[in-house]
Design a protein around this nucleic acid. Sequence first.
DNA 1: CAAAGCATGTAAGCAGTTACATGATTGT
DNA 2: ACAATCATGTAACTGCTTACATGCTTTG
Lengths: 180, 180
Amino acid sequence: MSIRYAILGFLSWRAYTGYELKKCFADALSFHWSGNNNQIYGTLVSLHKEGAVTLDIQPQEKLPARKVYTITESGRQELKSWLVAESELPILRSEFNVRLAWACGLSGKELLEMVGSYERQLAAQVLMYKEKARRGFQAPDRTDLERRLWNSIEAHAIAFYERELEWVVSLKSEVGENKE
Amino acid sequence: MSIRYAILGFLSWRAYTGYELKKCFADALSFHWSGNNNQIYGTLVSLHKEGAVTLDIQPQEKLPARKVYTITESGRQELKSWLVAESELPILRSEFNVRLAWACGLSGKELLEMVGSYERQLAAQVLMYKEKARRGFQAPDRTDLERRLWNSIEAHAIAFYERELEWVVSLKSEVGENKE
DNA sequence: CAAAGCATGTAAGCAGTTACATGATTGT
DNA sequence: ACAATCATGTAACTGCTTACATGCTTTG
């Protein structure tokens, strides 16, 4: 999928500028996009061309004009028909897995160091996610269901890294036995 | 990362042709690449250009010549120094998550159908992975450690989809309560 | 005085995808 | 007759990334 529907999703809440959408992507857990300019500004241009959003240009005295995008009825319909379509299965792309697959050529010490380094990275990520989740996400008037769904998605994202961490810890003993 | 190191990994076992490598990627669980021609044949050409592999062309009577690639000492070193480098954290890209984030606009029935459809897909994926794991992977003389590592990676990959499935099932009750 | 925030955008590139192209051989 | 296996390769595309470019304002 592309970032297109995530942008339509945010716009279904309220009108946003590209700059504000960037912040949405930066703040939201469990969206895997960096929210870089090229994609957001580019996607907004195509959405506009295709009539999924309207554009309101608000000039400012000293700053570049704000371009405020508002979703149209056609945009809402596109979002809705995407929602009920079939999802692709999630893909787990883990560099560490690939490394581990050929790590048996390393010495026991190197292997443990490799696993330990990944463990530290994961632990930091878990902390970071938890902190982000604690701060919460700025969203306008959400229904109770929506809030519960977002909480569940967040918790699931955190759990993913926690499971990974547990697995890596279990790997250490598996590998450690072989060391001596 | 790129598929480059995975290819070097396979070649560290033994020499392969591009065609055989394609099958490796198709058979291996927990590698997220499709193993398409463009990538494999292209990567082999660059690996050769850079001296990480040597090439032996074996003409055949009626079929295109087999191009057998063998890893060089320099290729082995490149693989090893990659192994001990720091991994990027795994990224979970889940289309379903994005859909769910804005699914509260759907009716209770639509929502349950959406979740149910994803649940069925996941269940099928889990079965498929288990069947693949049961058949095992054709690899030449592996050490005990290597076999254990691959088993652990496979089990972890299956567990990932099983967790996702558990989560989705728990979502159903969360969503179901809201329906009435 | 530097950093962060506001606000737009572009250039160049990487990694990956599907689909196409060729063509013999063997099994159902 | 049709599909699968063997075996190579190319074309066109999508999605995403980092880094660059501009330039004013507010805060520390």
